[in-house]
Design a protein around this nucleic acid. Structure first.
Length: 222
DNA sequence: GACCAGGCACATC
DNA sequence: GATGTGCATGGT
């Protein structure tokens, strides 16, 4: 690690400023968004969520009562609409049966227990579970995504072999455990990823460029 | 028209 | 346990 997590954060924050992700929305909307955004551009998810808002369906029981083939049409813009309807319904079933439809009750759970129960739902993997916990429950758990892996592994700051939890542990160990910081850091990583760290990297004018050891990215399988 | 996006489950070896 | 594949829309 030639650059510290704090240094990288400072660079990104100075370059882009606060990202204000998922502000002023309900926690249920966070859950729906976390499900719909899987491997999908956020702008497409926004269309789907707007459809649900227009239909006054941003509430667990109401959404669960929508016939699946109608729900498909509403979330179609978010892509993968057949699998996502099923996954959404799996989560809704959990919220309604386990928590009587109350997200406050769900988010009152101890974090590790909640995480375990979320991961047991078909359609929720580690990133989705952690997104729900960080952005919905507002409890400090770091969200690792494709860009986190790309940015940090290509710069040689994290080993390529590291799996989800190894990467997550790296952030947990190196940062103050703070919801706002984790939120902002993840958002900034996605921002710099969009702009400079796609599959074809565009390192010129990247705010992280001169933090590269040797000035060259690590040869990249991702 | 190719490439890509804030994953995940499942099949196959 | 590792690796490959299907899932689908919409923007660049």
């Amino acid at each position: 690690m030639t650059a510290t997590l704090d240094e990288v954060y400072q660079r990104l924050y100075e370059a882009y400023g606060p990202q204000e992700w998922w502000p002023g929305q309900s926690s249920f909307e966070v859950v729906v968004g976390a499900m719909l955004v899987q491997n999908t551009a956020w702008r497409n998810v926004e269309k789907a969520i707007q459809n649900l808002r227009d239909a006054d369906l941003l509430e667990p029981v109401a959404l669960y009562e929508v016939p699946p083939d109608e729900l498909q049409e509403l979330i179609r813009p978010a892509g993968y609409f057949r699998v996502k309807v099923q996954r959404l319904r799996n989560v809704l079933h959990y919220i309604i049966e386990r928590h009587k439809g109350s997200l406050d009750s769900m988010f009152a759970m101890e974090v590790e227990s909640l995480r375990g129960e979320l991961l047991a739902i078909n359609g929720i993997g580690p990133e989705t579970a952690d997104s729900i916990i960080l952005y919905g429950a507002e409890k400090p758990i770091f969200v690792v995504d494709a860009y986190t892996n790309r940015v940090f592994k290509r710069h040689g700051w994290i080993e390529y072999e590291s799996d989800y939890h190894a990467v997550q542990d790296h952030f947990h160990a190196g940062l103050e455990r703070d919801v706002a910081l984790y939120n902002e850091y993840h958002a900034l990583i996605v921002r710099v990823g969009h702009l400079h760290c796609r599959k074809k990297p565009k390192c010129d004018e990247c705010p992280l460029f001169d933090l590269l050891p040797g000035g060259e990215i690590v040869e990249s399988p991702i």
